[in-house]
Design a protein around this nucleic acid. Structure first.
Length: 598
RNA sequence: GGUUCCGUAGCUCAGUUGGAUAGAGCAACAGCCUUCUAAGCUGUGGGUCGGGAGUUCGAAUCUCCCCGGAAUCACCA
């Protein structure tokens, strides 16, 4: 079905051709929603057309308005204010479009093209030496949400996680555990595996700092002391033995990483995110080396006298960047080169999206350029979905100062707060305990997820642990609450024996509020597309709030089930159920569950 | 110092391709529960869109310069 925008677009072009004998160039026909304070639904901005009409704005707008109104019964009236032509659209059009949305189970969604290449999304990518924190939550929510949004747009998605399971950081935890652990395990201590390992990492850092301090007091320079501290030397020795395949070290590494994975799995499960494929750096870190050596042979990279291999990106405005160490071992980016190649060989992705914090903007520019230098045409398909840091009121989270907001703790607190508030309101009486607990969980997590996802990813955001997350106002809770009330209307309708039509059978006139809401519903497909095109889930979050806010005002003024509203009930019921469905759909794409009651 | 990003109400954030008088929530104050769930609704107050110049019929939005903040520029990951 032709939307009214498409119809008007063509109509304006035809009008200009007929009246002034000119063709519209792209961008000249600007249609937008009419501002609330003016009468009308769609507005044509006529300024760009003045070049063709050679008339003042008002005359141009009036001429176009008259031409269109004479030919299209959908336009019932128009008015001109300065260079703006506001057109009023017939109620029947909106009722028809509402019905189309109401009866389309995949409203706004597109079906995947068969045989098309997938989009690969990498997110989470944790280190295995400490538990997940608030920054990881932003990462995971963004990655999971954008994957869902792409899928809703008919794109096949492969969700991947690249676990950084090797390196000096995990050796530090291992060393501390060997020293001070006394064989402690998750089951012996009752601690979650990732937290247990994280505690030993913290222990290492604490002891290490003491050693450094002692060396400095004994007369060494800070940098010297940091290199010479016995604990650091031991950790490095452990890394060497790991790389040499020492069975004892490998066994310890496997055991402790196993604990961490159990812990991560639980956190992921609670957070509601998942992956199709998990890559481990210990498997992939060697693969990039061959590619770098090939590039060296082709002359796109250079070897320095000490044997290290470099890429010179000064022409692109960047610096020289090391790709292989002088001892031949790989660095961080080497591993990413290898991983990208492995993935490309296996999936032929049309796009590779990396959800990684903005502190790695430089890294991903380099990665794309290096892959380009190596001659891979798909280097251009890399997309870094960069997001800002989550900061605390006093600044950045610092593990040294114990200001890291732990993911598990935060989810616990959110659920707990939801429980307390729910009990105060006392609306869940009559439900059994497991149902109640599930609703507390859904509300607590919904508030957290929405709070994070409503912010534009590119921006740093502030998280105030004591007062940030409200359950009032522009929150996930409010959206869930409105949904729960809509569901309640339908439960009541059933009790009252009111039949709910699938679509609006009559041609009831619309009031202003109803039009606003229907227009918002009809925006959903475009918002969903924009969110995918710009890799920005916050568009969906803010859209959901806007829709629900509008609906909630309507809800108060327009009783749906009252007997005196019988004749307009069908419209209101169809509208309500469609709002409920769209909002639930949008929120689910963000990973936010929608309770039927709360 | 170089590069990139951010700067909108006291606070947290929206703001569509450049479009009309820049919007929400929190906080403050005043109302609304015989009425489909008050986690809600209605109203009041609150702005040099960091500053300046430019482009344009029109700039929070695009360009340049400055100010403030963040990240990064490692043989760390």
């Amino acid at each position: 079905m032709l939307t009214i925008e498409e119809l008007l677009f063509r109509s304006v072009a035809a009008c200009v051709r007929e009246l002034w004998g000119a063709e519209c160039e792209s961008g000249m026909i600007q249609l937008q929603k009419t501002k609330r304070e003016f009468e009308g639904d769609i507005t044509l901005v006529v300024f760009p057309l003045l070049r063709l009409s050679h008339r003042p704005p008002e005359q141009t707008a009036d001429a176009v308005g008259r031409w269109i109104a004479e030919r299209h019964p959908e336009i019932t009236a128009y008015n001109v204010i300065k260079g703006f032509l506001n057109m009023v659209i017939h109620d029947a059009y909106y009722v028809r479009m509402l019905n189309a949305a109401a009866t389309d189970h995949d409203f706004g969604h597109r079906h995947p093209e068969t045989g098309s290449d997938p989009c690969l999304v990498e997110y989470s990518s944790p280190n295995t030496n400490k538990p997940l924190h608030l920054g990881h939550i932003r990462n995971n929510l963004l990655g999971y949400a954008i994957s869902n949004i792409l899928m809703a747009n008919g794109i096949r998605v492969v969700k991947t996680n690249l676990v950084n399971d090797r390196g000096i950081h995990i050796c530090k935890s291992m060393l501390a555990w060997q020293r001070w652990g006394n064989g402690e395990t998750p089951s012996s201590s009752g601690k979650k595996g990732d937290h247990l390992v994280g505690d030993y990492y913290v222990r290492f850092e604490r002891e290490y700092r003491q050693q450094v301090e002692q060396l400095v007091q004994a007369g060494q320079r800070q940098e010297e002391a940091e290199k010479n501290a016995p604990l650091m030397l031991e950790a490095q020795e452990l890394l060497r033995r790991w790389e040499a395949g020492d069975t004892e070290v490998i066994a310890l590494w496997k055991m402790m990483n196993g604990w961490v994975y159990e812990g991560f799995d639980e956190t992921y499960r609670r957070l509601g995110v998942d992956f199709d494929i998990v890559y481990y750096e210990s498997d992939t870190y060697l693969h990039g080396r061959d590619a770098v050596m090939e590039g060296l042979a082709k002359g796109v990279f250079k070897r320095h006298d000490d044997g290290s291999v470099w890429v010179d990106l000064r022409e692109e405005g960047l610096d020289e960047k090391v790709l292989l160490r002088s001892d031949g071992t790989s660095v961080y980016i080497t591993q990413d080169i290898g991983t990208a190649m492995l993935r490309h060989r296996r999936f032929h992705p049309s796009r590779m999206i990396y959800v990684v914090g903005n502190e790695q903007n430089y890294h991903f520019r380099v990665l794309a350029l290096v892959l380009g230098r190596l001659g891979f045409p798909w280097a251009a398909s890399l997309h870094h979905l960069s997001y800002g840091m989550v900061e605390l009121p006093e600044g950045r989270m610092k593990s040294r100062e114990g200001t890291v907001v732990d993911a598990d703790d935060l989810m616990d607190e959110m659920t707990e707060t939801a429980r307390t508030m729910s009990l105060e309101l006392g609306k869940l009486e009559g439900l059994d305990e497991t149902e109640k607990e599930d609703i507390y969980r859904v509300i607590g997590l919904g508030a957290l997820k929405y709070y994070i996802l409503k912010v534009d990813p590119v921006k740093n955001m502030t998280f105030n642990p004591s007062e940030s997350i409200d359950f009032d106002g522009n929150t996930g809770t409010f959206i869930q609450y409105t949904h729960a009330r809509i569901r309640s209307v339908f439960r009541k309708a059933e009790e009252l024996g009111i039949t709910v039509p699938r679509e609006v059978p009559d041609r009831a006139p619309l009031n202003g509020k109803e039009r606003e809401i229907i227009k918002l519903i009809l925006d959903f497909p475009a918002v969903l597309r924009d969110a995918a095109d710009t890799c920005n889930p916050s568009l969906l979050a803010n859209y959901s709030y806007q829709l629900v806010k509008e609906y909630n005002q309507f809800y108060h003024d327009h009783s749906i089930l009252r007997e005196e509203n019988k004749d307009i009930r069908s419209l209101r019921l169809v509208m309500s159920s469609t709002v409920g469905r769209v909002v639930k759909d949008a929120m689910n794409l963000l990973g936010i569950e929608m309770p039927d009651r709360m």
